[in-house]
Design a protein around this nucleic acid. Structure first.
Ligand SMILES: [Zn+2]
Ligand SMILES: [Zn+2]
Ligand SMILES: [Zn+2]
Ligand SMILES: [Zn+2]
Lengths: 165, 165
DNA sequence: CTTTCGCATGTTATATGATAACAAGTCAAT
DNA sequence: ATTGACTTGTTATCATATAACATGCGAAAG
């Protein structure tokens, strides 16, 4: 019951990002413990790398970082860690970008919406229940059984929209 | 004003697909004429290929078809035609699939939602105004300026859900 | 203990998706 | 006849993702 309402997520607003990172890592540990899965060094480091910023990173970008720190330098190393994180709800895959981002509020199942700034690459992960509901209605009308949804908006974050104007 | 309500699109229901194809081609011609763009042989054939089925096709799948019919056999041939069609609203790119599908009701700007069957690969393109509105609300709350949206649901079409049960 | 087995990590090689850069052909306007 | 915009084709290369196999490690069974 200590859940903050997810809508309080800072998104593009400035915030204490250290707290962001720490909280996500803690929740990741909890979640994996529940599922009996292991947060090994590569996986942990991969998550930390994703958590450094509110951006999405390509698998090869992550791989470069891992390799530089003594982990394997072949694609499967990064892809496996990323796939693991996604499977366990600790990271998301951004379909438009072929890239990955840390999940900012794991701990409960969610299929968030993403706002992606095309100028600065920043990313906001938002609870998308109303959007999903609207989509579920559409699907129901067509007898379609939804399993996974992708909801992504590309555009300008407040900061970049401001400087452009 | 002769517009059928877009919601009458047959989606997964059986229908006269010849009419589907013919209508889409006609509307494509109209639309391009308005914009002063040319429906050249490669482009036209590419559109026809996409229109053969309510499935998304990868660029290389399209390329194979084009090559077999005497057009160029190098990737840019397909990618250019597909890009052209997408730019002019005659085809859509499916982000989850890295693939393309003909637009079934061009003629007015739209950012549809897609229902993608993971079993038979069939695809429904649906008007998504309510979904987009919900997403727009989210964006507005966060000061985000939306430019393009991706709304895709992966799951089972009625037919495939039926046989699975 | 030590054997066994699942799983994590690493490798090499290859598949799949996409674009850059350049050359040549068409065609309408000058 | 010449120019310039546009289209199509090429070669070469980049980017993204997975298959297949080898090794190591640690918990559970013997
Ligand atoms: Zn943060
Ligand atoms: Zn921005
Ligand atoms: Zn049809
Ligand atoms: Zn199906």
């Amino acid at each position: 019951m200590s859940d903050q309402p997810a809508s309080s997520a800072p998104a593009f607003a400035p915030h204490d990002h250290r707290a962001c990172e720490a909280r996500a890592l803690d929740q990741a540990r909890d979640r994996l413990a529940e599922n009996g899965a292991r947060l090994t060094p590569v996986r942990r480091r991969t998550l930390e790398i994703l958590l450094e910023s509110h951006r999405a990173m390509g698998a090869y970008e992550v791989l470069d970082r891992l390799a530089a720190e003594g982990f394997g330098r072949q694609p499967p190393v990064a892809y496996r860690a990323l796939e693991f994180l996604v499977e366990h709800g600790l990271a998301h895959r951004l379909q438009r970008l072929n890239a990955f981002a840390a999940c900012l509020h794991p701990g409960h199942d969610h299929a968030p919406a993403f706002l992606i700034c095309r100028s600065c690459d920043m990313l906001a992960e938002l609870p998308a229940a109303p959007v999903r509901d609207a989509l579920a209605d559409l699907a129901a009308e067509n007898g379609f059984q939804v399993e996974r949804v992708t909801i992504e908006a590309l555009g300008l974050c407040p900061a970049c929209a401001g400087t452009a104007a």
